[in-house]
Structures are given as C-alpha cells and as structure tokens.
Amino acid sequence: MTHAERPIADVVIAGFGGQGVLFAGQLLAHAALDAGLHTTWFPSYGPEMRGGTANCTVVVADGPIGSPVVGRPQAAIVLNLPSLDRYEPLVAPGGLLVVNTSLVDRAVARDDLDVVAIPADDVAAELGHPKLTNVVLLGALLARHPALRALGRLTPEHLATTLARVLPERHHHLLGANRAALERGAELAGAAPAAVAPTGA
C-alpha cells in the first residue's frame, strides 16, 4: 500500500479547558487502537488553564500515520462558540461539524458541511451527569461520521469496553453513564445522511 498515510478519519475536538476535550480525543484514540487501527492523538499544549481554550486532533488510519496534525480536518467537534468561530472555516468541504448548541448562540454559516447540532450540556444534565457533554458529542460524531461508522468497530458498545479497560477502577461506577451518553449522542445524531444536508445550529 503506497498511500498508507491516507487516514480513515481526522477529527479536531475543541472547547474550553475543563470540558473534557482532551479526554474525548483520548477515548477515541484508545478505542481506535482497540479496534486494530493506527491512531495519533495530538494535543494543543501551552501555558493554558481551566477556562482557557483546548483542542486535540485525532487521526485514525489502517496503516502508519504521517502527519498527526491537519490544516483542513474532515471532522470537528466544537464545544463552545470560540471553537466554532475557529474551526468552522477550516473543516474540509463535505466534512462533518458537530456543534454543542448549549454554548453556541449562532447558526453554522457554511452550507457545504454535514452539521449535527446537539445541546449537549442539556442532554448530559438530563442524563444526570453534566460533565459528560464531551462523551455525548463523541457518540454523535461516531454515529454520523461515514467512515468511522462504516467500520462498525467504534460503536457505543466498543467504546464502553475500551473505557472499562482504560479508566481507573475508582471511576468504574461511571461506566454505565458514559455508555448512556454515547448512545444518546448517537441517537440524536441519527444515521449519516445520503447527501450533505445542512441543518444550521
């Protein structure tokens, strides 16, 4: 395979520090590895603190990965307005944009993206775990991203198994809630549409 560097997916996850942006990316990367795929997780790192901005890039491929960073990601999860402002222009045409509308008060302007708009803070609160915003949105991404969905190896069930492996024992009482958050996100995102169907936010 000469073009092993062509990834199955590259995903940017962005939000405020403390929203679980880096963790959501790590969960995706761990799950990809468990699914027998190659993966890289690349964090924005800097003199940052809770409430500052945070983002990470996850690349998933079936062979060795070249660049762990991308200029025009195929997919993005944005957890707040500054992240939407930054990444909406960058997502590749025809790409997927998952928006946390609980913290975004404007519509997505581009009409060439598949937009999934979910009030994920409210959804997580309804589930009784307001900190699981990130996991709800990850569930939505995995259900809607055509290539990741087609793998059939990154379902909420698979991610729950991965979580049980990577989470320290003391957090295992949260495994059920995490799985519920993944499933709720997937349900709200629905299946990938046949063609790009802009929905606005």
């Binding site: 790590q26 990367a29 190659h38 890289t40 690349f42 964090p43 762990p68």
Partner: peptide, 10 residues
C-alpha cells in the same frame, strides 16, 4: 521535539 513528546500514538 515537543510534538513527539506530547502526542500519543500506538
């Protein structure tokens, strides 16, 4: 370099 130090990979 910093990217190799900070990134995660299988």
């Amino acid at each position: 370099d910093g990217s190799l130090g900070q990134m995660m990979e299988g």
